[in-house]
Amino acid sequence: MIQMFHVYKAYPGDPPVLSDINLHVEKGEFIFLTGPSGAGKTTLLKLLFCGEKATKGQILVGGRNIARIRESAIPYLRRNIGVVFQDFKLLPQRTVEDNVAFTLDVLGRPRAEAREKVHRMLKLVGLEHKASSYPLRLSGGEQQRVVIARALVNDPTILLADEPTGNLDPALTVEIMDLLNQVNIRGTTVLVATHDSTLLARYQKRTVRLERGFIVSDEDGVKAARRMAV
């Protein structure tokens, strides 16, 4: 599903943010990207949805080389990738329903069809009763669930989550992670960037560790969890 070959990302005048990244993600996999702040986790995710361009190397997403993608083709790539951010990025003046429907509006889906999909998605994230609420009236966990619903409403094949639980307390963190796990079980490839080691131990998924822009380890869930325990 995702292949990265000798990928580098550097900004002029600074040391590389990512160096010689080689990563292969199979369809339907769940992967944690971990490492300290500044390790390059967010940049790596940005490269995958063309929020940034790689300085060097090749990146294939769904068989398409996005290192050489035309600007005009980026929107069509993004329609297959859902993105979840730590800071939610919800529109405060729109209702929960409208925020989730935003993705379908962009794709020109008829309103009736969009409404039906939105309700199905809100049901999945357990927020159907909050459809007409405004985001600022929701808890952090609820807001993050709205973001996940927005990211999934278009049935993307890949879900990228950048510190999705970074602003949440432990109980809400588990709630969100359970939801992402459930999404993965339904067939979506999920990449979660986190520096929360308790998550790695609890969910035991393949874990790719970044340090100073390099991949320093790539272990299966059990091995990673065992190392965390040591």
Partner: peptide, 16 residues
């Protein structure tokens, strides 16, 4: 700008 940023993230074309 926030709305535009989200539009772009969910796959809106420039024309859209």
């Amino acid at each position: 700008r926030e709305e535009i940023e989200i539009q772009k993230l969910v796959g809106a074309t420039d024309r859209f």
